[in-house]
Amino acid sequence: MKRCHLAYLACTAALVGVGLGAVPAAAAHKILVVHQGESIQKAVDAARAGDTVFVLGGTYHESVKISTPRVTLRGVGPGTVIKPVGTKPAPKPPKTTAAKAAISCAEGGNGICVVGTKTKNVEGVTVSDLTVTGFSRAGVFGMATDGMTVHRVYAVKNGVWGIAQERSVRGLFRDNYARDNGDAGLFLANTIKEEAGAYDAGRTLVEHNRFEGNRIGVTVRRLRNLTLAENYVTGNCAGVFVVGDENKPKAGNVQVTSNRVDKNNKSCPKTERLPALQGSGIVLTGTEKNRVAGNLVTGHAGKSPLSGGIVLFKSFVGVTSDQNVVDQNTLQNNSPADLVNTETKGRGNSFRGNSCRVSRPAGLC
């Protein structure tokens, strides 16, 4: 009989009150270890708030859904690989609610799903130190989350997004590598299933990531209150998109600072939403009160309407971009120009203190 290798290692912490006598020990937090050939989902289903599911190196053919707060799913690094089931036999009909949820994550084409409910966000979930690849939709997908952390995840060759999150607050995306995904390496949005105003992302932070070879490196859609800082964005069709539309409240209040955005010259055909893309560094459209500052934007070239180093683009739905500040950036060798402003009706937009040579219209450098 095959020996079960699912181990439970208790990590306990005792609190001692000085001068008040002993305080009862805190509830134990467990580490549930998963070996190759075992089910990650089974361990996640057994985890309670504060527990860690530690997945050893190997390839695991499954999708995983997390809905318990403060659970950490951690691998050993790129050698922990999560892939779709593929040609394996279809799983037996699930008997538990958690198992049904995991199947729905897989049927949606996602690798790892972190999902709350319509009335309550799932809090404090961490996904780290693993690879998700080959899923038809997203490698990692979060919805209705509060404080979700995605750290040192390799999201490679997924059909739509490497990492995606919607209707969530206080997210942290740090030290990830998203490469060769069908749409965005990182996609952050209010909601993708309905028309709605911009969602307050609660100081979501995206920092120290690398986005390479995707259609778009990072897309921020219909959100407010978010920072992208010190990321490296290269080899995509477009580097960074901050996008709004006619809904209220308006998208904006996004800080794009100290990023290196280089040679995003891959060519991508047009879609229902966007024209063909090539040679776009940082693009703002239909948004307000953003600041794009201290970025190094170099080597972009293309003939798309959105081509250029930093582009303030007129909205496709006629919404103006207002009160955006583009300052203290260094731009070199971008074509048709380092700075491009096609927003002729917007109010209060400013370009100041940038180091560049060519702008459209002239005079922005």
Rank of each mutant, 00 (worst) to 15 (best):
I163C: 06
Q165E: 14
A238C: 02
N181A: 07
Y199R: 01
R167V: 14
T234Y: 05
G159A: 14
F187P: 00
A196Q: 08
N209D: 08
R174Y: 12
G202I: 08
R152T: 12
T204C: 04
L188K: 05
H151A: 09
D200S: 01
E195K: 11
G185A: 08
L205K: 08
E194S: 05
V220Q: 02
G235I: 04
D146Y: 13
L226C: 04
M148D: 09
R215L: 06
E207L: 05
R174K: 11
T145C: 15
T219H: 00
R152N: 15
F141N: 13
D200N: 13
L228H: 07
G162M: 14
A238G: 07
V218S: 03
E195S: 07
S168L: 11
I216P: 02
A201D: 08
F141Y: 15
K157G: 12
N231C: 03
I163A: 01
T234N: 11
T149A: 14
L223Q: 02
A155S: 15
T145P: 12
H208S: 02
V233L: 12
E194R: 14
A196L: 06
F187C: 02
V156D: 15
G202P: 03
G182P: 09
V150H: 13
L172T: 14
L172V: 14
F211C: 01
L188E: 06
T149Y: 11
M143W: 13
T191H: 11
C237N: 04
E207D: 06
L228F: 06
Y177K: 09
G159P: 12
R179C: 08
V240Y: 05
V160M: 12
L172N: 10
R210C: 06
I216D: 01
C237T: 07
V150S: 09
A196Y: 00
R224C: 02
G142P: 08
A164S: 15
L228P: 05
A189H: 10
R203E: 00
I216A: 06
Y199I: 02
G202W: 01
R224Y: 01
N236M: 03
V218F: 01
N225V: 02
D200G: 06
A198H: 05
D183G: 04
A201F: 04
N176L: 11
E166Q: 15
E195G: 07
T145Y: 14
R174M: 12
G202Y: 06
N225K: 00
R210V: 07
L205Y: 00
